[in-house]
């Protein structure tokens, strides 16, 4: 089986779908001839032709609006928003149109669109190239929000997202495009080759939306993470020496509540890890769901380890970033509580 990094895996997913489904097409800023600023669409225009993968004006609202119209026609457009930080001009389209169209038209029209966007920090991108906006999509019913943590999942989840008949926000953790990153920024960079999840089949396969992955079994505490934070969690667990169970959500909507509940009922403790700022973040929803369903199994308060409630700061990247040390401290606190 070939080894791929996440960029290659995503590219392979798009290539497979352009090949297998003539109703798919890709557009976005710089995605055509050039192949995207992160190279995810590299070679697709050359291979599949101009109309299957082309450049769009710098107009996130226009990109998503036209994609919705195409979806209503019967196509399966896949659009790229260059950075998730730039998605806000499209927010009205996503909330008022994509998420509501099926409901308000009683199914006469719907928008089977996939909106890809690189997200998250750890790349010294400052406040406009580092944000994690997943909570503002999770809050909007009618949207699905998917976040892979390795190349194998990235390809399978992206194909599942494209084939899904509901609008999907597909957030790509750009810090781990080229290799896993566990938050230890002073270590040598890793590549995907030889890492779990880097062996990726050439052809079509799917990873279903709404199914979490149990990354590590453990007895004493459940750690919930997604995206880059799955790798940070592994480092934090190792550093703490705690026998923790690690769940990679893979999609936050739909949410695999069963896996979460089964794990927390077993361990009795839970730490939620995300890069987005804490207040109003998706960790708040997870925490509420867990206390509603697992209250009598809990041995200690649920902890949230997250970005601080500041904009993403440039010089303070590693002070902001919820790295393995902060997780390890939380795990130990949780056990001692």
């Amino acid at each position: 089986m070939p080894t791929m990094n996440m960029i290659q895996a995503l590219n392979s997913a798009l290539d497979v779908m352009l090949t297998e489904d003539p109703d798919t097409l890709i557009f976005g800023e710089d995605v055509g001839y050039f192949g995207g600023v992160f190279r995810v669409t590299e070679g697709l225009q050359r291979k599949h032709g101009l109309t299957r993968c082309f450049d769009a004006p710098i107009s996130e609202g226009g990109i998503v609006a036209t994609a919705i119209g195409m979806g209503a026609y019967g196509l399966r457009p896949i659009v790229e928003i260059q950075f998730a930080d730039y998605i806000l001009p499209a927010y009205d389209q996503l909330v008022s149109e994509a998420a509501r169209l099926r409901y308000r038209s009683n199914g006469e029209f719907f928008a089977p669109i996939t909106v890809r966007a690189p997200y998250g920090g750890g790349i010294f991108g400052g406040q406009t190239h580092s944000q994690s906006p997943e909570a503002i999509f999770a809050h909007i019913t009618g949207l699905k929000t998917v976040i892979p943590s390795n190349p194998y999942d990235a390809k399978g989840l992206l194909i599942a997202a494209i084939e899904d008949d509901d609008p999907v926000i597909f957030l790509e953790p750009k810090r781990i495009y080229n290799g896993p990153f566990d938050g230890r920024y002073d270590q040598l960079l890793k590549v995907w080759a030889g890492e779990p999840g880097a062996e990726v089949p050439e052809g079509r396969y799917t990873v279903p939306l709404g199914k979490a992955a149990l990354v590590r079994k453990g007895a004493d505490v459940t750690v919930i993470a997604y995206g880059t934070m799955v790798h940070v969690a592994q480092a934090g667990i190792a550093e703490s020496g705690v026998d923790a169970e690690l769940i990679d959500l893979r999609s936050i909507v739909p949410l695999d509540i069963e896996t979460i509940v089964a794990s927390v009922r077993k361990t009795g403790r839970c730490v939620i890890l995300h890069e987005a700022s804490r207040f109003g973040g998706f960790g708040g929803e997870l925490s509420a769901l867990i206390q509603e369903r697992c209250f009598y199994h809990l041995k200690s308060p649920i902890e949230r380890v997250a970005g601080w409630d500041t904009p993403y700061p440039h010089a303070f990247e590693w002070d902001y970033f919820p790295g393995p040390k902060r997780l390890a401290a939380a795990l130990i606190r949780t056990l001692e509580a």
Binding site: V64, T66, A72, L75, L101
Partner: peptide, 24 residues
């Protein structure tokens, strides 16, 4: 096409629908 009380937000969808027809 499905109406909404948010004025203007289907104007781009009209263009996308037309582009889809041309694409096909």
């Amino acid at each position: 096409y499905s109406l909404s009380g948010n004025v203007g937000s289907r104007f781009g969808a009209a263009v996308g629908w037309a582009m889809a027809s041309a694409f096909k």
